[in-house]
């Protein structure tokens, strides 16, 4: 049995979740404190990949990162580097489809925070940086963690956009969902079943753990 799809899937999901978490938290916090013209348009744009068919997202990514794409041609010319048909393409596809989940969770988490707690910290001399790390982040953490787990699971299961951008190259871009599809297509039902069981078990345990964790912490984090 070749385990490379598992390792590749984990690698892609971990790396994309890392970037999605940073960007999602940062952007959601920035926007939560501001109201400006066009904010709802910007937010709609962030959430768009959630409702689009993955093939459309993949198509858009090809336009951007393909050999003749805006970013792709530039990368090729200056760095002799190609994203299409590489595992980095799979990472980019994962980032784009899982960002909305992270953004939404983070925005909701920041929205539900009591602004007076941050203000109390400010009146006690705390800088914005300290307010964020000692008050906002720990209190929003249950929501942020939920977003993190959702993004990770979404990244792990990403198929459509990945297929368009990274393709199916055994040993290079064959993540678990990809391996399942091509195993079924070539009649290797046993192999497909194996990966299906793996990914269901993994997803199920993840959700179970998050639910258990948030229940355990709800008392400590609950409002007074």
């Amino acid at each position: 049995m070749d385990y490379s799809p598992l390792i590749l899937s984990l690698k892609v999901a971990v790396i994309s979740t890392f970037f999605v978490f940073l960007a999602g938290v940062f952007i959601a916090y920035l926007l939560s404190k501001r109201d400006f013209f066009g904010k709802s348009i910007l937010e709609a744009l962030f959430l768009l990949p959630l409702v689009l068919p993955p093939t459309v997202v993949g198509f858009a990514l090809l336009i951007l990162f393909g050999k003749k794409g805006w970013i792709g041609s530039w990368l090729l010319e200056w760095f002799d580097f190609q994203i299409v048909f590489t595992w980095i393409g799979a990472v980019i596809a994962s980032i784009v489809v899982s960002f909305p989940l992270m953004y939404q969770s983070a925005a909701a988490a920041f929205e539900s925070l009591d602004e007076r707690l941050s203000n109390a910290a400010r009146t006690m001399g705390a800088s914005e940086w300290r307010v964020f790390w000692t008050v906002v982040f720990p209190l929003a953490w249950p929501g942020l963690l939920a977003g993190l787990v959702l993004s990770f699971a979404r990244g792990l299961g990403e198929f459509g956009a990945t297929l368009m951008l990274a393709g199916y190259i055994p040993g290079k871009t064959d993540t678990i969902p990809m391996a399942i599809y091509f195993a079924v297509e070539s009649g290797q039902m046993e192999k497909a079943t194996f990966w299906v069981v793996i990914i269901i078990t993994f997803g199920f345990s993840l959700i179970l753990w998050v639910n258990w964790w948030s229940k355990r912490n709800i008392r400590r984090f609950s409002r007074m």
Partner: peptide, 20 residues
């Protein structure tokens, strides 16, 4: 002058203690 530089003590309604 930003709030953090004012050296003000502020007891909020419901106290706004940090729950964590």
């Amino acid at each position: 002058l930003p709030a953090r530089d004012r050296q003000i003590g502020y007891l909020f309604q419901d106290y706004a203690l940090f729950p964590h």
